[in-house]
Design a protein around this nucleic acid. Sequence first.
DNA 1: TGGGGTGATATTTTT
DNA 2: TATCACCCCA
Length: 669
Amino acid sequence: MSLNAQQRAAVRYLEGPLLVLAGAGSGKTRLITHKIVHLIKTCGITPQHIAAVTFTNKASREMQSRVADLMGGKKAQGLRVSTFHSLGLNILRRETAALGYRPNFSILDADDCSGLIRDLLRREFSDDSQVKAVHWQISSWKNAMVDAEQALALADGDAVKNLAAGLYGQYQRHLKSYNAVDFDDLIFLPVRLFADHPDILDVWQNRIRYLLVDEYQDTNSGQYQLVRALTGPRGALTAVGDDDQSIYAWRGAQPENLALLQQDFPNLKVIKLEQNYRSTGRILKAANQLIANNPHVFQKALWCELGYGDPLQVIETRSDEHEAEVVVSEILSHKFKQRTDYRDYAILYRGNHQARLFEKTLREQRIPYFLSGGTSFFSYVEVKDIMAYLRLLVNSDDDSAFLRVVNVPRREIGPTTVEKLADYAGGRGISLFAACFELGLKTQLPERAATRLEQFAQWLVDLGDRGQRGDPVAAVRDMIAGANYELWLQDNSKDEKTAERRMANVWELVTWMQRVAEQAGEDKTLADLVAHMSLMDILDRGEEGNTADCVHLLTLHAAKGLEFPHVFLVGMEESLLPHRSSIEAGDIEEERRLAYVGITRARKTLTFTFSAKRKRGGEMVPREPSRFLAELPSDDLEWQGGSREVDPVQRQERGQAHLANLRGLLSSG
DNA sequence: TGGGGTGATATTTTT
DNA sequence: TATCACCCCA
C-alpha cells in the first residue's frame, strides 16, 4: 500500500524537528515504519543510528516486524526500536559507572518497590496504611524529574506529600545500596545523567542521529526531557501523536508536551494526517462532532473514502444484566446474518468491573471471548520468586530479592535469623548476601543458622559461576531443580491442579527466557537476559490472542491502537462515562477523549448501550444516558428499546429463549 | 500453615 | 454488595 501526500511529506521531511498529528486510523505506524526505511535506504543513515521509541512492548514489536517486512528480507541490523524504558535501560547499562551504580543492577518492579516503601513506613512511622499513596507520589515526582531534595521543598501541608517527601531520600538510598533501580529511574537517571555530563550526552547524540517517537501525547515530563536531550540542537526528530487520544493524563502523561514541542523547537514543522483508513463516514462524523467539544491547540478533522455506512445504534436496556444479554444477542444475530467471525466484535467499557456480566453471558452462550487485563504473568507468586532468584544470581546486592527467596522454598532460615542477619549487614554496610560469608556473623547467630545461610549463599555463588561460564538457561534449570521448587509448589498449592499450573508458569518463564536468549545471540549474559525480562510481560507475546476467534472484551484504555469491524460501546451513562470522579473533579475532557477513542475503534458498525438501571452495591440505581450521546449527530443515530415495560421474569425468560434459539441457528448453520 | 474472619474498596495501567 | 487482601489464631 502506498502513502498519501501528507504521509509522504512527513516521511521526506528531514530539515528539522517534525510533529505529525496523526488522527485515529490515519496510518501512523505506517508512517513511522516507512520513515525508518526511508532514512536507511534513501538517506543512507546506518540503522544503528536510528531509534524509534514506543510506550509498550507490543507497539515496539509491531513496529519492528513491519520495518522488517518493508526492508524485504534485508535486515536493518542494529536498528533501535524499543520502549522508552528499554532505551533508558540501554543508556543506564552503558553508563553505570557515571551514575555510581555497579554493573548488573536489578530492576525492581512496582510490587517490590511498594514492599520496600512498606518496610520503610513500618520502620519509621509504624503505619503502613499509605503505601500506595506514597509510592504513587514518589513515582509522580520521579516522572516529573523532581528529586528527593526538591520534593522536600515541594511538600508543605499535604499529609501524603510530607510522608512521601520524608521517605523519598531513604527510598533512593536503599535502592542504591541494593544496586537496583525502579521503572521510573530508567527515565529519570538518564535525563539526570545527560544534564550533568554534556560529554556523555554528546556520545549519545552521536549514537542516535535520528529519533522517532510514537504516541507522543502520552509522554510525561521525564520522557519529554529525554527526547529533547537526545534530539539536541540538530533537531533530528519525528514525533507522532494525537492530542485527542491522550487518555493517560491520570498517570502523568502531559498532552501539553505537544504544544511544548512548538515552544522548544521554534522551527518545528507540523503535518496533519487526517485521512482515515478505518471507519465509515458516519463513525468519523460522530467522532469529529464529539471531540469538537474539547478545546484544541491544533485543529484537525478526520475524513475518509470508505462510504457513509450504517447508522449508529443506541440501545437503552432495563438493567446491566439486560444490557449484557442484548449485546450478546445482537452479536449472535449479526454474526448469523453477516457470516462474520467472533473476532470481528469488540465490547468496550470504561471500567474492568463492567466486564463481569458480559463475561458471564458470553460463557453461558459458549461464545469464545478474550478478556483484556487480568493478572499479569509477572505478578504470579511463582514467577516473582524465580525472577527474584535470577536477580539475586546476577546482582548479589539485591537485598529485596534475597529477602524474598532466602526461605522460599523452606531452608529453615526463619524471621529471627534474617533479622539478625539484617542487623549485622546493616552495621557493616554490606549486602545480606555478602554478610552470609562473614566470620563476624557467626558470633551473632547460632551455628546452625549461620551454616544454613552460608550454604544458601554458596549455592548461589556456584550457580552464578555456572551461569557466567556456560549456558545461562541451563544454570537456571539447575537452580529450579536444586531449590526443589517444584516440591515446594506442590506442598503450597491448594490442589494438584494449581500446583501443576503454577509449575507450568515457571517452565513458561524458562522457555521464554530461552527464546529471548536465542533471539539475542550468543553474547547475551544472564544479566542481559534478566534485565530484559524485567521490562517485558510474557503475556504480550500476542499471537494466540489475535488468531483465536474470540469476541474481545476490552477497557477503553486497552482498546487504544486496536480496531474492530463491529464495536459495542457499553455503559454509556453519566457517572460511568464520563466517570463520576471525573465529573466531580470537573475534568471531563479526558473522558470525552476516552469516548472518542472508543468510537474510532469501529470500522463498520458502532452500537452504544446504556442501561436505565444498574446494580450498584446490591441495589438497582437509576441511571442517566451519557451526555456524550447528546453530543453526537442525532441524524446518524438510531434509538432502540427503553420505551416499554415488560414483566422482568417474563422478559428474562424470553431473553434466554431468544439467545438459545440464536445459538441453535448458528451451530446448525 | 492454612483457613476463616475482618475490613477496606469499588477508574483507567505500562514499564 | 461482592471481592480481595491481610491478619490472626488454632
